[in-house]
C-alpha cells in the first residue's frame, strides 16, 4: 500500500482485558491492519470477538495493551478527536436537546456561529429525511429516527474518518436497508475513510470495498468487493452479489 495513501494503520496491536472473575481475556494478539484514504472497509465477525474493540481503539476511547494505532502516520493511542467520528450501536444522542440541536452539537463545540450551524444542520437533516423533526426531542423518536439523527450529527461534524460499530444492528430489515441507502448517499457527498463493523454479511458486501475478519485474534482481509459505485439496492439479489456472499458465508461458517 502506498505510504501517502495510508490513512489508518493498526500496528502490532494487542488488547488484553481484565475480566471480572480475575482472569485475563485476550481479544487481539499482534493484530495489524492498513486502510487507505477514502476507503470503505467492513469488519465482520461474531459477537465478542473484538470488533467493537477495534472501533474503540481507533477512536481513541481505549488504550491498546501494546502496539500502536496511527492516523496519517501519527500515533493516536487513547486520544479521541473530532477527526474520527463514531456512530455507536446504542442511541447516544442527548435526550435533553432537540434533534436539530443534537446535529449542531459538534459545530457548537467548535464555535461555529448560529446561522451557519443551523444551515449545516438543516442540510444534513434533510439528507437523512428528518427535516420535519428538527424540533422533536429524542424521546419522541423511533429507533431508526434516532440512528438517523446520530448519523446526521456525526456527518455535520465532518470527520475525516468514520467509525461505525454495528450501527444498524438493532433495527428491522426494511429500516436497515433504508439507512444503508442514506449512509451511502451521505458518503457520496464526501468520501470519508470508513470502518464499518457488522455481523450482517449482506450489509458488509453492499456497503464496503474491502472486508476484514477477525481470525486467531488477528485482523485478516478476506474479500475485495468488485462492484462500482453508486450501488443500487437491486444488486443485492444479483448473481454477482450472491457469489460474493457465498464466499463470505463459507468463510464464516467454517
Amino acid at each position: 500500500m502506498n505510504h501517502e495513501n495510508l490513512k489508518i494503520e493498526m500496528k502490532n496491536v494487542s488488547m488484553i482485558f481484565d475480566s471480572h472473575s480475575g482472569g485475563k481475556a485476550e481479544v487481539l494478539n499482534n493484530a495489524s491492519m492498513k486502510i487507505r484514504n477514502k476507503e470503505f472497509v467492513a469488519i465482520i465477525g461474531h459477537s465478542g470477538c473484538g470488533k467493537s474493540t477495534i472501533i474503540n481503539l481507533i477512536a481513541g476511547l481505549q488504550l491498546p495493551t501494546s502496539g500502536n494505532i496511527l492516523m496519517d502516520s501519527n500515533i493516536i493511542n487513547g486520544k479521541p478527536h473530532r477527526s474520527r467520528g463514531v456512530v455507536f450501536q446504542q442511541d447516544v444522542i442527548f435526550p435533553w436537546r432537540t434533534v436539530i440541536k443534537n446535529v449542531e452539537y459538534g459545530l457548537e463545540l467548535r464555535g461555529v456561529l448560529n446561522e451557519e450551524r443551523r444551515s449545516i444542520a438543516r442540510h444534513y437533516l434533510s439528507v437523512v429525511g428528518l427535516e420535519h423533526a428538527a424540533d422533536f426531542f429524542p424521546k419522541e423518536l423511533s429507533g431508526g429516527m434516532c440512528k438517523r439523527v446520530q448519523i446526521a450529527a456525526i456527518f455535520a461534524n465532518n470527520p475525516e474518518v468514520l467509525l461505525m460499530d454495528e450501527p444498524f444492528g438493532s433495527l428491522d430489515y426494511p429500516t436497515k436497508i433504508n439507512l444503508q441507502t442514506v449512509l451511502l448517499k451521505l458518503w457520496k457527498e464526501s468520501q470519508k475513510t470508513t470502518i464499518f463493523v457488522t455481523h450482517d454479511l449482506e450489509e458488509a458486501i453492499y456497503l464496503s470495498d474491502r472486508i476484514f475478519a477477525i481470525k486467531d485474534k488477528k485482523i485478516v482481509e478476506i474479500l475485495q468487493i468488485p462492484f462500482t459505485r453508486p450501488r443500487e439496492n437491486k444488486i443485492r439479489n444479483s448473481v454477482e452479489f450472491v457469489k460474493e456472499k457465498k464466499i463470505l458465508w463459507e468463510y464464516v461458517v467454517s
Partner: peptide, 16 residues
C-alpha cells in the same frame, strides 16, 4: 459512559 464517549468523539474537551 456512552454520553461522555460520544461527546469526546465529537471534539468536546473536559470543560465542555
Amino acid at each position: 459512559k456512552k454520553y461522555t464517549q460520544y461527546a469526546f468523539t465529537l471534539g468536546a474537551n473536559r470543560f465542555q
